[in-house]
Design a protein around this nucleic acid. Structure first.
Length: 490
RNA sequence: CGGGCGGUGGCUCAGUCCGGUUAGAGCGCUGCGUUCGGGACGCAGAGGUCGCGAGUUCAAAUCUCGCCCGCCCGACCA
């Protein structure tokens, strides 16, 4: 090409932050709304979120949960019932104070999360051990008044699912907490091709009102961790203040044990950042809104035949199934832009597979396919009289691409997980944007805070216990209790 | 919330310091024509409350003040 290639998006390696904004806006995933921190999900971005929802929702339903819908507004008095909960959320709550011109008798919170309203309802619905467990999930928007925002990763209004369950025993509730943590882990890894670490949070990082929080943590290309899903053991804190009691089979009235868990639109931001490259998005085939784009190569004299046969092929490709669902195919017959423009366009949008159909292909009985993930360009046989072909040539590549993305992500995570033997090593890892610093941990909350002040890294997750009493905490020198992961984070 | 930078056709920006007629460019967009195997070309054309609101002035994109939004750094962040 004689002309220097135009620059549409910043190179990912040059400036990740600018690249991210360029991709989100340029790929038409989202746009800024007039209110700070609020964003519009444009059709392509919403389609991506719907695709993500579909896969996660299936996992939630398959583990025995049901969907419902609770209201947006929560009376202030409800939010105030659980002391830690209100303390944690107070700075981020948006309040409704007026109805029309009339001042309300009680302020209404726009839900920052729904424990308060759901627990209120649960106290009405739960009377007997026979009513348990209650396993309800909802897909809703919530609002948290954030000071620093970024599309998808941290927005004032965001979309998520929040599961809220009530159980007869703490053991049962803990099983649920871990079950959902694993659902999130498997969802991230198998559906989104995002490698994650998972485990419990330290006390200082847990959810406001929880006894314990577990999380999945992804590693971004700039060495910062992204908390991508949380599962909380709420103990009986909410049950006690909302009076959620049941009569057990031993004739004793007891409080329920609760859990809550959530994954938000933030995970889409992680997905974008983790997989994308200099050319733009690279979407895992499972959740890509378009899995295969068919681009006809139009010449004046062969135009009608190419358009007709390419469209028929696109239709035939759409008859295939991959990942247990019909393949999502787009046929782009737009004659106003060149084929080359479309190539770049769909690469930027992260479409996993491109199929080119030109007169020479029809003549030879093949099509050119270009794999967005591996970069491979190959010819695949197609019979243009009956539109028969080997489906595995297409679906196999989509499956391989899904696998490759995850393996890349896993490799990246491993290479960014480094042992830190002392605080200066941890400091070094964080300062050089290297990633997760893994340590032997036996420190206190104060130690954790001191580490944060010195390195800006926080304790992301706790890993397996350390049984050897001779192993010391990397920071305090006390006997180590467990392995732990520190990192800078989003 | 603090510090820094920015906001001018859809996009990227020039013009602002030093106020002065009809506010420019490239890209994009519209129409017509020629094209099309990696971001096509020609000709014609449309498109602007200069982020919003006050103030100073004969005169404000330009100066002053307040506010909004964005980007970067920090604080905060289940």
């Amino acid at each position: 090409m004689a002309k220097e290639e135009k620059k549409f998006i910043t190179k990912k390696s040059e400036n990740l932050s600018q690249w991210y904004i360029d991709v989100v806006l340029g790929c038409e995933l989202a746009d800024y709304a007039p209110v700070k921190g609020c964003m519009v999900f444009r059709p392509y971005g919403w389609s991506l979120w719907e695709s993500i929802k579909e896969y996660l929702n299936k996992r939630i339903i398959d583990t025995g949960h049901v969907n419902a819908q609770f209201p947006l507004l929560i009376p202030e008095s409800f939010l105030k019932k659980e002391a830690e909960h209100v303390k944690g959320f107070a700075p981020e709550v948006a309040w409704v104070t007026h109805g029309g011109d009339e001042k309300l008798g009680e302020r209404l919170a726009i839900r920052p999360t729904s424990e308060a309203i759901i627990c209120h309802m649960y106290s009405k619905w739960i009377n007997s051990y026979r009513d348990l467990p209650v396993l309800i999930n909802q897909w809703v928007n919530v609002m948290r008044w954030e000071k620093k925002t970024k599309p998808f990763l941290r927005t004032t209004e965001f979309h998520w699912q929040e599961g809220h369950t009530a159980h007869r025993t703490h053991e049962e509730a803990m099983e649920e907490v871990i079950r959902m943590l694993h659902v999130y882990r498997d969802f991230a890894q198998e559906d989104l091709a995002m490698a994650v670490l998972s485990g419990p949070k330290s006390d200082s990082e847990k959810f406001a009102g929880a006894d314990q929080t577990h999380a999945i943590e992804a590693m971004m290309p700039d060495g910062k961790a992204l908390q991508s899903g949380t599962s909380h053991d709420l103990g009986q804190h909410f049950a006690k203040v909302f009076d959620i009691k049941f009569l057990d089979d031993d004739q004793v009235e007891k409080y329920v044990w609760q859990t809550s868990w959530g994954v938000s639109t933030r995970i889409a931001g992680g997905l974008i950042m983790m997989h994308g490259d200099d050319a733009g998005l690279r979407l895992p085939p499972k959740i890509a809104p378009i899995q295969i784009v068919v681009v006809p190569i139009i010449f004046e004299k062969s135009k009608s035949e190419v358009l007709e046969k390419a469209e028929a092929l696109a239709k035939a490709l759409g008859g295939m199934a991959v990942f247990g669902r019909p393949v999502r195919v787009k046929f782009d017959a737009n004659e106003q832009v060149s084929a080359g423009f479309k190539f770049n366009h769909y690469e930027m949008k992260g479409v996993p597979l491109r199929v080119e159909v030109g007169p020479k292909d029809i003549e030879k009985g093949n099509v050119k396919i270009v794999d967005r993930i591996s970069g491979a360009k190959e010819f695949v046989s197609v019979n243009f009289s009956d539109y028969s072909f080997d489906p595995a040539e297409f679906t196999g590549r989509l499956e391989a691409a899904q696998k490759n993305l995850f393996e890349n992500s896993q490799r990246e995570l491993e290479s960014r997980t480094l042992e830190a033997g002392d605080i200066s090593e941890l400091e070094n890892i964080v300062a050089n944007s290297r990633g997760f610093a893994i340590v032997n941990w036996g420190g206190s909350d104060e130690d954790e805070l001191a580490i944060k002040e010195r390195t800006s890294a926080t304790l992301r997750v706790l890993l397996e216990p350390v049984k050897d009493g001779n192993i010391k905490c990397f920071y305090s020198g006390n006997p180590a209790r467990c392995r732990a992961v520190f990192a800078a984070s989003y």
